[in-house]
Design a protein around this nucleic acid. Structure first.
Lengths: 198, 198
DNA sequence: CAGCATGGTTACCGCCGGGTACCATCTGAT
DNA sequence: ATCAGATGGTACCCGGCGGTAACCATGCTG
């Protein structure tokens, strides 16, 4: 009913749609569902987004950016590895705690499907992995380094999924400390592997 | 064209459908697509499965079982923590290398959506986490223990996703060794956290 | 008070996909 | 030879959903 200026409406749609898709997934939620949740009718959505895909992509980009910039800000101007790790994880888990719907949307809903979307998600996790990779300062080849980096990213993701799924009320700093020390200890144990393939 | 006995046909369907869904996802692949891939027509599928959901559930259960039993067998009769960790990861990454389609189906396709499915997947990861949890022999409360267990499971998942997505030709034992030492070192660093909630 | 831009709604189309009723065909026991 | 039952195919229904055309309403500007 209430009329809104275009930009405000657009933001509102993004905000509401995130929650709807986070809960029901891309295919589970119809555009009518989104429109109902927003409190408008379908054509309004199409005034702001070309297609369902388009809306969804916008959500991925927004949510991904929020996550990456959070971590990015926290780890800027830090050269020390341990400190970078700590701050990175702290920022990450704070993001999860505050922006839990975005986390569910990105990593716990069906977003990792549909090729177009999955590549976008891969892009985001790849960027996260790239941020992690330099922390591994052992002499190993690039491929293994990236694999380990992805393992660490997955670690954070796995912990978060469990936390969010269990209600989402947790102390991010506490968790971050635990996971960060876990990761850091693991990192220091990475051995420069020689060519024993046995 | 060729007629098959019911059990053989059923197995064939499960086998083929796994690949189809792993690639296209639950919503991306229609029952006609599956039928075409099998080389039969739709009603044949419905002779063996009540619904698309039913078929999909059967696939989840089968794939999940294969994974969990692989790990289960490898870690049976092992009391030593380090050895259990090594063997568990080795079994896991071997499973990923051999049964890559099942991995993609479970963790890289959109299976983690649609509530009915996602709970099944949660069940599987939860069981994996339960297998990991005893390795953390520090005095911490159960909740944190489970969170860390999920973190380790996520670690394996993250690494696997990257490996599979990059072609899937990797040496599972080599990777397992690296990830296992990463995990083990991390585990030993888990501190019994006291009640500072600050 | 015209007139126009902006924001919203109603009603509809077309298509795709899950699911099914019904028929054809093969096999094997009597 | 024949009849039963199981296996597979053809053709269809129907509901839902993405997307759109055409039409209202409100308010700002001269």
């Amino acid at each position: 009913m209430s009329r809104l200026p275009a930009t405000a409406r657009r933001e509102q749609i993004l905000d509401v749609a995130l929650g709807v898709f986070a809960t029901a997934g891309f295919y589970g939620a119809s555009m009518n569902d989104v429109a109902d949740a927003v409190g408008v009718t379908k054509p309004v959505l199409y005034q702001h987004f070309d297609s369902k895909h388009d809306l969804y992509r916008a959500l991925i980009d927004e949510a991904g950016n929020r996550m990456l910039t959070s971590i990015g800000k926290a780890t800027a101007n830090t050269t020390d590895g341990r400190e970078g790790t700590d701050r990175g994880f702290a920022a990450y888990f704070r993001w999860v705690a505050e922006d839990g719907e975005a986390f569910r949307f990105l990593f716990s809903s069906g977003t990792r499907r549909d090729d177009d979307f999955s590549s976008a998600i891969r892009e985001i996790t790849a960027q996260a992995a790239n941020a992690v990779a330099p922390l591994i300062d052992v002499e190993i080849d690039a491929e293994h380094r990236m694999t380990i980096a992805h393992a660490l990213v997955g670690m954070a993701e796995g912990a978060s999924r469990q936390l969010v799924q269990r209600g989402g009320d947790f102390d991010p700093d506490e968790i971050a400390e635990a996971i960060s020390s876990l990761a850091w200890a693991g990192l220091r144990a990475v051995q420069p592997l020689d060519a024993d393939t046995s």
